[in-house]
């Protein structure tokens, strides 16, 4: 209970309750949900008529029309369906940095978004990259699953150093359905994040990339002659911190962010930079709302 409240405060829950996840694409849910689909289906709300073709469910024939016009028409109703929401959290060692750590931040963000989904009766699945090696993540549905979700999130640990591309590939293989996928990662991949995102693109999902960076990465406070050790692969970079180097670093970072943004927007993905010193609440109710993930 306590760990759950550390992820999501009651105030945040109250605000999140009014939100819902939005997909810009039409998805086929497996179960009926609270979501009005653009597909016609079975519900109490009439949508349209169409001519009967062989194989149509006879239960939906409008017999009154048939009696009057002697032609078979099928009544169509608005379909209400559920939404598949996937939160994909990068759990590599590099996420375990910052104050709060990027991983904790990502977990909180996933919890918040998952809660929104749960409240709206959507199908919520939160996975970490490299999930294949662990127990499969639970599929959650309904407000009652909130505690399960939070418990599950609490149990997650960073340190699964799976290359980004491999983790996403594995996710895509296991989850073929359509829906919304939110990737929360720092995109710090030596071999590049582009292949990984391409796997996601192939899924034809509504993709949100939340590029999460810590303050220490954005404005490094380093001085002197340093031996930088990469916490994931032990790679070493020897630097002598100086004004020009810091300027150079910031230029590189800006270029990195820009290229990621450009890559995403060109391919219809929503790219959102985030930093760990901005509260999750502000990120969701502010930026994510602007970008149309929640409404």
């Amino acid at each position: 209970m306590s760990s759950a409240s550390s992820l999501l405060s009651p105030e945040l829950l109250a605000r999140l309750e009014r939100l819902e996840l939005v997909s810009r694409k039409i998805f086929r849910g497996r179960m009926k949900g609270e979501r009005r689909s653009r597909r016609k289906g079975q519900s109490v709300e009439f949508a349209d008529f169409r001519s009967y073709v062989h194989g149509d469910d006879l239960r939906f024939l409008d017999w009154n029309t048939y009696a009057r016009l002697d032609r078979l028409f099928l009544k169509m109703f608005l379909e209400e369906e559920d939404l598949h929401f996937y939160a994909l959290v990068d759990a590599s060692a590099s996420m375990d940095f910052g104050e709060p750590t990027k991983f904790a931040y990502a977990r909180q963000l996933a919890a918040a978004l998952g809660f929104v989904g749960l409240v709206r009766g959507d199908r919520v699945k939160i996975e970490t990259l490299g999930q294949a090696n662990r127990e499969p993540a639970p599929v959650l549905r309904g407000r009652r699953s909130l505690w399960r979700m939070l418990e599950y999130l609490d149990g997650l640990e960073p340190g699964a150093n799976v290359p980004l591309a491999q983790g996403i590939k594995s996710f895509c293989v296991r989850n073929s359905g359509k829906g919304i996928v939110v990737l929360i990662s720092d995109l710090m991949e030596k071999s590049g994040y582009e292949p990984a995102l391409r796997y996601l693109l192939a899924q034809d999902m509504d993709i949100y990339v939340i590029h999460l960076l810590s303050v220490e990465e954005i404005e490094p406070e380093l001085q002197g002659d340093l031996r930088l050790i990469d916490c994931e692969d032990g790679d070493v970079a020897e630097i002598t911190v100086s004004g020009p180097l810091l300027t150079r670093y910031k230029q590189t970072l800006a270029a990195f962010i820009n290229s990621a943004r450009e890559f995403c927007t060109r391919r219809g993905m929503v790219y959102l930079p985030a930093r760990n010193d901005v509260p999750v609440e502000q990120l969701i109710t502010g930026y994510l709302r602007e970008r149309g993930l929640v409404r």
Binding site: D225, A237, P244
Partner: peptide, 21 residues
């Protein structure tokens, strides 16, 4: 000989920064 070791999330950006220099 005496560089202070510092663990960072990733040397990815640093490598790219010092490459120019």
């Amino acid at each position: 000989l005496k560089r202070r070791p510092v663990e960072v999330p990733s040397t990815y950006l640093w490598h790219r920064s010092i490459e120019d220099l």
